[in-house]
């Protein structure tokens, strides 16, 4: 089966993720979009693992899944903190670095 089918599927998911990260205002939704991007990466890893017939890609995918879980944990804690301080989960309220 064509390798590129999987890779292009992953690229599409990745770019939808990019759109979500850039365009969503709500912090939780931004984190969901990040998950889309991470999943795209995982599909790439598994596809290449099958292509080069080496199990390392699968192990790396496992690591990515683990780290994604940690990322969501910390990320949601940060969103909670933003919510508590600004009474809103919106990321564009945070502009203290404005030049």
């Amino acid at each position: 089966m064509d390798l590129n089918a999987f890779l292009i599927l992953a690229a599409v998911l990745f770019c939808i993720g990019i759109y979500g990260v850039l365009a969503r205002r709500n912090g939780v939704l931004v984190l969901m979009s990040v998950e889309l991007m991470l999943n795209a990466v995982n599909i790439n890893l598994i596809a290449f693992s099958a292509y080069v017939q080496d199990v390392s890609g699968q192990v790396f995918a496992l690591f990515v899944i683990t780290i994604a879980a940690a990322e969501v944990g910390v990320g949601l804690a940060i969103v909670m903190l933003i919510y508590r301080n600004l009474r809103s989960p919106d990321l564009d309220k945070i502009d203290q670095l404005k030049g």
């Binding site: 850039l22 945070i94 502009d95 030049g99």
Partner: peptide, 17 residues
Amino acid sequence: VRTVQSGRVQRYALLLF
């Protein structure tokens, strides 16, 4: 160029991507 420094993280991310 000054308006680039919006202080909003998603604006920076847009430029990054």
